[in-house]
Amino acid sequence: MEATHGWATTDEGAVAEARTGNPEAFRVLVERHSRSVYRLVYRMTQNEHDAEDLVQETFLKACRQLHRFDGRASFGTWLYRIAANCATDLLRARQSRAQKQVAFHAETEENPMEQMPSHAPSPERLSLSSEIGRLLGPAMSQLSAQERAAFVLRHYEGCSIEEIGQALKVRPNAAKHSIFRAVQKLRRALEPKLGVTAGSSL
């Protein structure tokens, strides 16, 4: 596909061709970006099926809003904004439902992090990375949707504070504080499990 059409060699070319109504051009964009979008939304949701659904939703939204892509950011960045918003909406809706359930079952609900075994593995037994990998999902679930989105975009995707603000439709200062809160929450949640105190040396 990409070898036979000049427009397929760049995202800009494929976008321009897709705007003429050619679905094959959009297919090129899907095949080129679906894995990176999947990684982004997986990091936000920590759930494979949610991530798969969100990738579909992201590309369908992108297709319907293609006329609004102005080329100031790269197509990939524009796509990330849509993906981050789709994931944020999903997480907000889910957290809203969860809060209602928590309010209803206030006496019986427990902190998911407290249900996890609190053993502190020695460095010899487990690598730090794999241990964090096991604990990261439950820890991320303690972040708000905006905190998760801001942290993932900054920490894994290297987006600037300004870009995160634009993506999440918040002021840069709000984006920055979301990242701060995310880092604080993750450290408080994870470092004790790893046998260290937040703020001290690992």
């Binding site: 990684r39 990091r43 990375s129 990998g133 690992l202």
Partner: peptide, 11 residues
């Protein structure tokens, strides 16, 4: 360490 946590490729 948080950054190094890998994400599997989609199925």
């Amino acid at each position: 360490a948080v950054r190094s946590v890998p994400v599997s490729d989609p199925r």
